[in-house]
Amino acid sequence: MKFKALTAVAALMVAMPAITLADPDDDTLVLNGETEMVTKAAAPAHMEETGIDTVMSGWHFRNDDTQAMQADDFDNPGMLAVESAIEAWNTVEGEAGKSCASCHGAAEDSMKGIRAVYPKWNETAGELRTLAMQVNDCRTNQMKAEPYKYDSGPMAAMEALISVQSRGMPVNVAIDGPVQAIWEKGKELYYTRTGILELSCASCHEENYGNMIRADHLSQGQINGFPTYRLKNAKLNTVHGRFKGCVRDTRAETYKPGSEEFIALELYVASRGNGLSVEGPSVRN
């Protein structure tokens, strides 16, 4: 019975004109009935050569139910991770006898605006830092605690807690000065066709966003909504975890979460979303 129903739905989908199915919608994301989010924005100047004039959140490419789930914190399963991260934030760990709160006080105040500008150049260390790298730098150097695994649940949860403090603020990562060479490298990776299927990020998310690839509605592959709660694996997913999955799907040897390559790619992809609201934790399928 179930199978029959499915087939019928599928037949219907095939019969319908592709346009109605495939285009991103024009809905408005209002968070908790209060905060209107910018989910479509004029593309940043550096994207001129791509021919894309409007950047769009992946939210527009999901169905109404998934969209609604993200619009209300009580329905957003990612918010449970935020709860657990609040506990971690206040928990003393490591030989220095400190918690995040010991140095940063209330996350609501000290973490406001942080997510929007990462990855970010750290002048003292002379390196580009993703949010995950900064969290682990605090854990190892300030708290003398063990680092979180780069794309682990506790890391995703901590990133979610930090992202929540910037929700609604525009993504605004810097791409010039000391990070320019890394940004260029990230851009090169974005256009490199990998694997036996020879597909690049651009093959799917620049040339074909709005189209269907089998049952998947392709978005622009933006990361303003990360970490992302995916209904498919029922957990919060990190940016590098998602990158890894997409590269694997080209039948390629993937890069590792936390690798130089994915750090550069994160900076580049983040910069393609400059102007969109920070949404994390978002909900996707």
Binding site: T192, R193, T194, G195, I196, L197, E198, L199, S203, C204, E207, N208, K244, V247, R248, D249, T250, R251, A252, E253, T254
Partner: peptide, 30 residues
């Protein structure tokens, strides 16, 4: 074109072993 080549075994960047994410040891055509 984005369409993959279904009967070719060379010229790939970072070819993988199916969908494992690991490097391919031997490349079979699709």
């Amino acid at each position: 074109t984005v369409m993959p080549s279904f009967y070719r075994v060379s010229g790939f960047t970072r070819p993988g072993d199916g969908y494992t994410g690991k490097a391919a040891t031997e490349i079979a055509p699709l």
